[in-house]
Write a protein that binds this DNA or RNA. Structure first.
Lengths: 199, 199
DNA sequence: TTTATTATAGCACAGTTGTATTATTTAAAT
DNA sequence: ATTTAAATAATACAACTGTGCTATAATAAA
């Protein structure tokens, strides 16, 4: 009998409006009024989908992690193993504008997670999920016997994971100093140095 | 004839109070009232030293960069060159609680700099200063002939710099996953892999 | 068409924000 | 002790905040 709206779809639209506000004006400007305006809704209407502001922010942050997961799950890799690994790792980097904005917004949420246990929980989850991907890549190198016998897997996981996030943040903050191409070149070079040099 | 106060010293005290507020409650809580209370001052008094809030935040951010520079300038290094380089790079890392808090606050400012050109300017300066230190380390490796002939200096600078910042951020966000010791071990290992492996 | 229920919108309220203004207190120089 | 400029404090105000509450509009089922 009543008007029916798909709540999930509407929440996604609102969350994307939240991203837009954060990307353009900062997370401190992500007020219910500003988000409602960006989503072309009244405040009262927005609050039918998110009763509190923390709930809105939490959902908006979570949606980023879901988008990242989806992208990784949906991508299909072909070609020589080293190239596949490279492409997997490239998926972490903000190499196009969408990903760049996404990561800028993620950085804002990350900073806030330092003083918000709820957001920190989500941050921790994503951290471990991404680390797992890096771990898989490193262990693939081992099982393919691309690396030396004394290869220190655990250290190499942390090294590669930190390198990726470091490159991403540097590019977000100083795109003129660290270009997309350089980002890619560094990852490529890093993988090469991991593999044993023979012949 | 009037009461005289050292403005610079007072501003430093206020800036440190700002850090405290940001570290404990987040940058969005760094209001003039909260900072004044943390500095045990009235709002009116605080505004004798900082007439606007952006001015206060800008100064507080800048003071962090000055503290980092001071630490680097005042430190004296002795011992074998590789160890000296290691210690220089360790100086970047949040290995004690002071540095950890400092970097948490810096991360908050960094996130805000994405939507604040004034803060981004400061961020850019610091970025280039620190990159210069990394560059010096890499070029020392070359002039000491510790590295192979086909050593790609520019790529290695970006790689090492990104690695350092990535480790630092990972430790700030997930200290249980990436300990101080691991941070150090990864840097040490990275330097070793840079040097040519012979005999 | 009526009806029931959801969606939407608007208003209100108390609390917080940055900042301007004004008054008071303080202490160094006379 | 008096003077005087600086330091400190208090108050005020308009704008903005999250959120509660109420009324209206819309629409799918009867």
């Amino acid at each position: 009998m009543p008007k029916k709206v798909d709540h999930e779809k509407r929440k996604i639209i609102i969350a994307e409006a939240t991203w837009k506000v954060i990307a353009e004006a900062g997370i401190e400007r992500a007020t219910v009024r500003n988000v409602a305006e960006a989503a072309q809704l009244s405040v009262g209407s927005l609050r039918h989908y998110f009763t509190t502001q923390p709930e809105l922010l939490r959902y908006s942050m979570q949606l980023i992690s879901e988008r990242v997961s989806e992208r990784m799950a949906n991508k299909h890799y072909t070609g020589p193993p080293l190239q596949v690994m490279q492409e997997i790792l490239f998926e972490f980097l903000p190499f196009d504008n969408n990903r760049k904005i996404e990561m800028e917004v993620w950085l804002s949420f990350t900073a806030r997670s330092l003083v918000d246990p709820d957001l920190m929980n989500l941050n921790r989850q994503v951290y471990h999920d991404l680390r797992q991907v890096v771990s898989t890549v490193i262990h693939s190198l081992i099982s393919l016997q691309f690396v030396a016998n004394d290869f220190a897997a655990e250290v190499e996981i942390e090294r590669l994971y930190a390198l990726i996030d470091g490159l991403a943040i540097h590019h977000i903050l100083q795109p003129d100093s660290l270009s997309v191409d350089t980002m890619h070149a560094v990852i490529q070079h890093h993988l090469q140095t991991l593999c044993k040099q023979e012949g």
